[in-house]
Simulated scan of single mutants.
Amino acid sequence: NFKGNYPEFADAGYRNIVLDLPGFGRSDKPDDVNYDLAFFVTALNGFINALDLPKVTLLGNSLGGAIALGQALDYPDTVERLILMAPGGVEERETYFQMEGIVRMVEVYSRGPMGVDQMREVMSLQLFDSAVLSDDILAERAAVAVTQPANLFSTMMVPNMTERLGELNCPVLGFWGTNDKFNPHQGMHKILNNVPTARFIMLNRCGHWVQVEHQRLFNSSCIDFLQHG
């Protein structure tokens, strides 16, 4: 999802670490763990410590946004800034599972590992304009999907962190699309109302992947945020 973003951040002089979470991509995929927020935050914090990183800017979309929030809340000394795109973790689980995109994802995933056609069925809902979905992207994702553990989504529990948002004291830049079918964009107001250091960019004609559909605006806004706070 970030192939059109991190090269520009690198060109601007920033080190980029693009992380595959456990259960995803080419990372380990244990089938005997609960893939809940605490598991992912523990993995991320361990990763930061193992590389002995200084304070980091965490950039996260959806589940990644929830994990970034969890890291900043539980280990504030590790986080300098947050960049969030339609982050999870600010609604009750029931709210997310009423969203069209998640309903479809669960339905398709319950049939077994997603092939290219099934991947297109789900991923087309991630975008306002699905024309940007190439066969190469779909094939790449389908190849990973067959390796994912069966309990990945069934154990994915992310608590509603709205009541803890006031604990955040780092600058936050957020993005949300009004056509998001996975995370309700009203969550933006929960962050803005509770985090004085937060600001958001709301975009129409945009789904769940701001960084893909509005790549130029996203990249320039993030670089400005990194340079000027």
Rank of each mutant, 00 (worst) to 15 (best):
I191C: 01
A198V: 12
A139G: 00
S221T: 15
L138F: 13
F175A: 05
I137A: 05
P159N: 08
L133Y: 09
D117F: 02
V132I: 03
G166R: 14
A150H: 12
G166Y: 00
A139S: 02
H208K: 10
C206R: 11
F175S: 06
Q211F: 13
L138H: 02
E163L: 13
S154Q: 02
N193R: 12
P184S: 12
N169M: 13
V132E: 02
D136I: 08
P149H: 13
L152I: 14
M188K: 15
P149L: 15
Q118E: 07
I223Q: 04
F200P: 12
K181M: 05
Q227C: 11
A131R: 03
V158E: 10
H185N: 14
T147P: 09
M123P: 04
M156F: 15
I191W: 11
T178C: 01
L192N: 14
I201L: 13
T162F: 02
Q148E: 04
F128Y: 08
E140P: 06
V172P: 11
V195T: 06
P184R: 00
W176N: 07
L226D: 12
R164I: 15
R199W: 06
L152Y: 03
S134F: 08
N169A: 14
V212C: 06
M188W: 11
G177I: 02
N193L: 13
V146H: 05
T197E: 14
A198T: 12
F175P: 09
N194G: 11
F218R: 02
H228R: 15
P184W: 01
L127I: 13
L217W: 05
F128H: 07
I191D: 11
S154Y: 02
S220T: 04
G177E: 10
D136Q: 05
N219W: 05
V172F: 03
D117M: 09
D129G: 00
L138G: 08
S220P: 00
C170G: 03
F128W: 02
V172H: 01
S154L: 10
P196R: 07
